[in-house]
Design a binder for these strands. Sequence first.
RNA 1: AGCCCCGUAGUGUAGGUGGUCAAUCAUUCGGGAUUCUGGAUCUCGUAACGGUGGUUCGAAUCCACCCGGGGCUACCA
Length: 562
Amino acid sequence: MGSKEHEVHDFIRDIINKDLKTNKYGGRVHTRFPPEPNGYLHIGHAKSICLNFGIAEDYKGECNLRFDDTNPSKEEKEYVRSIIEDVRWLGFDWEDRLFFASDYFDQMYEYAVQLTKKGKAYVDDLNAEEISRMRGTLTTPGEESPFRDRPIEENLDLLNRMKAGEFADGEKVLRARIDMTHPNMNMRDPVIYRILHASHHNTGDKWCIYPMYDWAHGLEDSIENITHSICTLEFENHRPLYDWFLDELGVYHPQQIEFARLNLTYTVMSKRKLLELVEGGHVKGWDDPRMPTISGMRRRGYSPSAIRTFCTRIGVAKVNSIVDFEFLEHCIRDDLNKTATRFMGVLRPLKVVIENYPEDQVEEMEAINNPEDPNAGKRKVPFSKVLYIEQDDFMEEPPKKFYRLAPDREVRFRYAYFVTCTEVIKENEEVVELRCTVDPATRGGAAPDNRKVKSTLHWVSAAHAMDAEVHLYDKLFTVQDPLGQKDTDFKELLNPDSIEVLTSCKVEPAVKNLKHFDRFQFERLGYFCVDPDTTEDNLVLNRTVGLRDTWAKIQKQQQMNK
RNA sequence: AGCCCCGUAGUGUAGGUGGUCAAUCAUUCGGGAUUCUGGAUCUCGUAACGGUGGUUCGAAUCCACCCGGGGCUACCA
């Protein structure tokens, strides 16, 4: 499929190619993925991970995994753990380059002293509210703090005492001394250090002052010798500050490049919003299969390779855009079609009795494990007198274009026989059982006389079937852009039918050999994954995505034409 | 309102230094072929350079203005 995927071309690689040509970084390419450990990773992060690690791979460079852990009040070890797990699961390797911003706190402090000595930073006694007020507005300039012209020695002393813990939270901050009238708000004497008497997941109680993002991030990149510091669009206005800090310090200076973050229809992509769903009990946790988190998608049955292809195929640009979730589904189908073992399972069973089949006979029918992969081999599926088929596969009064089973109609039972429905048994208008006959000459599923049949159905043998609980999923939200609705909280737009639990499913016996997280296909139904809640006597399956369903489309059209 | 970024088919994108663009690839949508999954595969088709001026023999590519979208006023990242 997708032609020359190896020749990825985008504006970031353009810049890198140019830098390589001019030898800007001595031919090096070194990127980093810098998550803050304050939540679980989602598919949007996967885009960034694939970009950063992918570029390093393409250019034979390196990519660091670095935790941007500068705010102890929001960050936790558990998030560090999950992020490491997710990046690794996606298939990326940072070798020995796992770093923490907090490992650089000493160095960052030294740089702050340096900046202060240069007269480019000062300790401000104003409180948060005063600083905010005096920063001015988008259209009006800010005012200078009365503490802005403190002597350097006094600043140095105060900074040292801030660090020593002599002051309470919020009592003082260290600010850069730039320009309170700058049209870019970020340049109006931004805060560099704030006092936070909080215990840090990594440094414990060693520090009570913590660096702000703008100050810390460029330094982290510089210390790690990053060449291209790739981040999202909202940091574009911060680049002048990124550059200013590094230039004032006179240290190694990477290039910050901004790209548009990923948006997907029918979901939300912000850690804060996802946290809200988790804490509000709207989903069952960060790894709920309906969540766009990496762990949720893993549990849903997405493969790392499908996520990776998705990320490269959506491309990278600077335009804000929103990708159809259908494209994600296409990528997972495309991947699983080639790799998933096929099985048969019935979600909503309808009993079928084969009248002309001996009571106690069992035949082992040979089935192909994956028609897309000859190496996947074959397996045996037991066939007997009493079977189950899908309720949807029978209609007493079939409309036009319904090719499946109906009274007096012959269809094929996959890998088994041609079957004709001879009698319909009902209880209060409801079809509860079918009586059918098989044509013994069609054993295996092929007709010696070459006669055709309009459809092939999946089935399971009642006596041999295993029970299973199957979870079917639908879109998490009812609208494409849940955050784009003014006056409506996104939680009110949750799809009440995003999960459907079916408990009386019947699946072929071979399924019992599967392990947690194994992915496979139920023929004609879709791709599924063994949920980790599965126990010895309770098989729980998640449907990752259905197969493309042409019949459903026809049905919809027929209903619309009525 | 000040500053910054962006504007190619329904969607996501490709289009170094202007011509070979009556514009790439993928998806979606519509048709056909094939098929023991109404799956997959193959094949055909519909569909786009925000607008207006300018520079030029020639502009999606350069310039100007306009229109439209997004971001920025956290001791968050």
